[in-house]
Simulated scan of single mutants.
Amino acid sequence: MPEHNIEFGKYGARGVRGHEAVARQLDALAGFIATPVTTRRGLLARLHYLTRTDHARQAAREVGLAVTDRTLKAWLEGKRNPSRKSLQQVETVYRTVRRHNVARYLLARLNREGRGTRVEFHPLNQSQVDRPRQRVVDYRSLNVRHWDRIVEAWAADDDQALDDAWVSDAVVDLGSQWGQYEYVTNIGFAA
């Protein structure tokens, strides 16, 4: 695609890829448990979320929770503590299951029956770039009406698909200068 930055940051510009900023915003809307998994309270909250029903337990096993029911019971009762590797596994499984569970709700909320959601593009930070090399990149806003592929890629935690969906379903609608918004300081939307 035209204007893809090959050497971003070579002259001191700072920012993140647009799809990464969108993923962070969707994560914030998903409402993950704030307490870290390394604390007892955080671990218990995640385990209760993953094991409260048979359906939740089956979903957790499908995405990679590979511990026995006996081990889960010991963790919940506090008789044993999970290893660092197991804590990371619980966190990964929790985030995957949570994304899958809230994806349909977020999709309806963002599409708003075809009206879409207003998205703000905050341009990249060029404060460290020498004046002659700076580009004029303005704050822009756009109404994104099709979130299906974006939310689907986010729920699957597929960065490449999310990048492709974000560029083709949203960013190209900015017009001929859409490549200037490949990297941004922030993407904001309130759904």
Rank of each mutant, 00 (worst) to 15 (best):
93 V>M: 06
181 Y>K: 10
24 R>H: 03
55 H>A: 15
93 V>D: 04
52 R>N: 10
123 P>Y: 14
151 V>Q: 05
56 A>Y: 01
93 V>I: 06
91 E>D: 14
101 N>G: 05
93 V>L: 02
149 R>T: 06
23 A>H: 01
117 T>E: 11
141 S>C: 12
159 D>G: 03
55 H>R: 13
120 E>Y: 10
171 V>D: 00
92 T>W: 06
13 A>D: 06
21 A>E: 08
1 M>L: 11
51 T>N: 05
18 G>E: 05
92 T>K: 15
2 P>Q: 14
34 A>H: 10
56 A>L: 05
185 T>H: 13
32 F>V: 00
140 R>E: 13
147 W>Y: 08
49 Y>D: 09
92 T>M: 14
57 R>Q: 05
185 T>E: 11
75 W>M: 04
70 R>T: 08
45 A>C: 01
84 R>H: 06
27 D>A: 08
144 V>K: 02
178 W>D: 07
89 Q>K: 09
122 H>L: 12
50 L>M: 12
43 L>W: 11
67 V>W: 00
115 R>P: 01
88 Q>A: 15
39 T>M: 03
79 K>F: 11
124 L>V: 14
66 A>K: 08
97 V>L: 10
121 F>D: 08
49 Y>V: 00
143 N>R: 07
15 G>H: 00
146 H>Y: 11
59 A>E: 13
23 A>K: 03
22 V>S: 04
9 G>W: 07
35 T>N: 00
60 A>K: 10
150 I>R: 01
112 R>I: 08
76 L>S: 02
21 A>H: 14
156 A>K: 11
94 Y>L: 07
42 G>I: 11
113 E>F: 09
179 G>K: 00
40 R>D: 11
170 A>H: 07
142 L>N: 01
87 L>A: 07
96 T>N: 10
173 D>K: 02
7 E>I: 10
15 G>K: 03
43 L>K: 14
163 D>E: 15
44 L>G: 00
86 S>N: 00
115 R>I: 10
10 K>E: 15
117 T>F: 12
39 T>I: 07
148 D>P: 02
95 R>W: 08
34 A>C: 06
157 D>N: 15
139 Y>C: 03
63 V>F: 05
152 E>S: 13
153 A>T: 05
14 R>A: 10
33 I>Q: 08
2 P>N: 12
2 P>H: 13
179 G>P: 08
23 A>Q: 03
